[in-house]
Amino acid sequence: MAAFSYLPKHSGSGEREAPTQLEIKLRRKARFNAALRYTLLTVVGLIMVYPLVWLIGASFKTNAEMFSSPGFWPSNPTIQGYIDGWQTSTAYTFGRFFMNSLWIIIPKTIGTAISCTLVAYGFARFEFPGKKILFASVIATLLLPNVVTRIPQYLLFRDLGWLNTFLPLWVPSALAGDAFFVFMVIQFLRAIPRDMEEAARVDGANTLQTLIFIVVPMLMPALISVCLFQFMWTMNDFLGPLIYLSSVDKYPVSLALKLSIDTTEAFAWNQILAMSVLALAPSLAVFFMAQKYFIEGISTGGVKG
């Protein structure tokens, strides 16, 4: 289909002649084609985005209005859902749960960025015994379903006394356990020329200095992508905290939200929706501030999601 966008330009070949019948026909067809695409994309786009818009609107509705109109604009806007929902039915407010989420995310993200940088540097810039098989294991891990390692991991963390702490969520990532990120940074690093690094080495810098002062600055776009994805995935992670955290005071937002559903859904929908909006807000904010990095990250390594 895309052919039509190039053909008229091509057959014009520089000289300004009166358009031929064929050209007119093709141009008309191209314009029709574009209109059709815009219509389709707009309709699909609205269907995609409307649930989220509705969610935001509904979080300001009263319980009675929630299921009475499909519109997103509340007739009597109220922030009662936010006020009540924030308090929760537990001894803690959502403030506590957001702090917990943050306290999981920040060390995990920093650990991921540092370990991925070191490991990717090792793979992309050095030859060493066993490199081939280790690199193959990165790819294998990328495809390995977590479901098969989860139970022994749980038992391991239990024996280490790490249950109901954030360690099971931090440590594997800090040891470059997210193969997707390792792979992404390796791919990115392979595409960067080595001239600068070689010059630095000739001037007497050791490999670690070269990594810190030359490679890391050039890797920045990839590392930002890694941090953003890790932030988003950890914010939304549910199964990890569900398995490893048992006391409510350690719950991140995702678990707290599930708890609110179980305890208050029967009578207070607006509270659940209000807290859902808050739970999505950090991810949405980060995404809109740094879209470019997401799209680039995804095109470098491909992504799940």
């Binding site: 989220l52 914010m235 995702s254 678990l255 939200l257 859902s276 991810s283």
Partner: peptide, 15 residues
Amino acid sequence: YVPSILGGSVAIAVL
């Protein structure tokens, strides 16, 4: 892209 970036989040399941 927005819906997929929110992935498996609990809030989306609620929605």
